[in-house]
Write a protein that binds this DNA or RNA. Structure first.
Lengths: 124, 124
DNA sequence: TGCATATATGAACAACTGTTCATATATTCA
DNA sequence: TGAATATATGAACAGTTGTTCATATATGCA
C-alpha cells in the first residue's frame, strides 16, 4: 500500500490520483450547512410551476387566484406551491381582506432566475 | 357571470382580481421550453452531492476517484451523479488512459453556484 | 346571522430520486 | 494473455415529490 492509498469510511478503497489537488479543493469547499441550504433552494426552484410563480412574482405582486389564472393550474396547486416557496423564504405575502398578495422575499431569487434563463437561452 | 370571470380549462372556476396585471405579466413570461429546461437545471443542482461536485469542478478539473475521496462517497454514487450532470451538459470530461477527468461544461454554472451561495450566506 | 368568496391544508396516490450492490467495460502493465 | 485499476451501468429499494380531491378557515357582504 503506497502513501497515496486510503480508505474513505469503510465504504470502499479508493486511490488518490492527485492528493494535493484534492487537498486544495477541500480547503475551498463550502461548509455543509450552506451546501444543504443551497441544495434545498435549488430543489424548490427545480419545478416548472414554482419557477413560473417565482418569475411572475419577480415582475409583479400577485394574489393566489391571479397566479392560478396566469399559469392555468388549480388554486390548490398554487397554494401548495406557494407554501413551499414560503417555507424556504423565497416569497412573502401580505393579506388584504380575503386576498393574499404574494411577492418575492429576496432580490437574489430574481437574479438567480435571470442568470438561469440567460444560461438556458444560450444552451437552447 | 361578470366580464372578469372565466374558467381555466375545466379544472375550476377562478375570478380575476386584476386582469390587466395578469395580462402584462403573461406577456413577460418565458416560453415553456425555457422554463422546463431551467427547472431541470435547478433540479439537477438541487442535490447536495451534485452541488459539491459542481462546486469542486468549478475550482479544479478532477477525476472520478478524487471526487469520491473529496466528498467521502462511493465511486458508484459519484459516477451516477456525474452522468446526471453530463446529461444536462453541466459537466464534460476527457479521458486519459483509465482516468476520466471532469470539468464544468459551462461558465454560467459557476456563476449560478456563486450567486446561490451568496444568497445562502446572507440568509443563514 | 347566513352565504359567497379567497385561501389553506390534510390525505392519498402515482411518479420520480439517489443510493447501494453487483457486475460490465476498458485500459494499463507485467 | 491475465491481473489490477478506473469508471460505467443496470436493477432494486426506500424515501420524496407534486398534484388532486375534499374540506377547513377566514373574511366580506347582505
Amino acid at each position: 500500500m503506497t502513501k497515496a492509498t486510503e480508505t474513505v469510511g469503510d465504504a470502499c478503497e479508493i486511490q488518490f490520483v492527485d492528493e494535493e489537488k484534492v487537498k486544495s479543493v477541500r480547503a475551498a469547499m463550502k461548509p455543509a450547512p450552506a451546501v444543504t441550504a443551497l441544495a434545498e433552494t435549488f430543489k424548490i426552484l427545480g419545478d416548472p410551476t414554482r419557477i413560473k410563480i417565482a418569475f411572475a412574482l419577480s415582475k409583479e405582486e400577485l394574489c393566489v387566484c391571479d397566479i392560478a389564472n396566469l399559469l392555468g393550474v388549480s388554486q390548490s396547486a398554487v397554494s401548495h406551491s406557494l407554501r413551499t416557496l414560503r417555507q424556504m423564504k423565497l416569497v412573502k405575502f401580505r393579506k388584504e381582506g380575503k386576498t393574499a398578495y404574494y411577492s418575492l422575499d429576496d432580490a437574489h431569487i430574481a437574479n438567480l432566475l435571470e442568470l438561469g434563463f440567460s444560461h438556458i437561452e444560450e444552451t437552447l
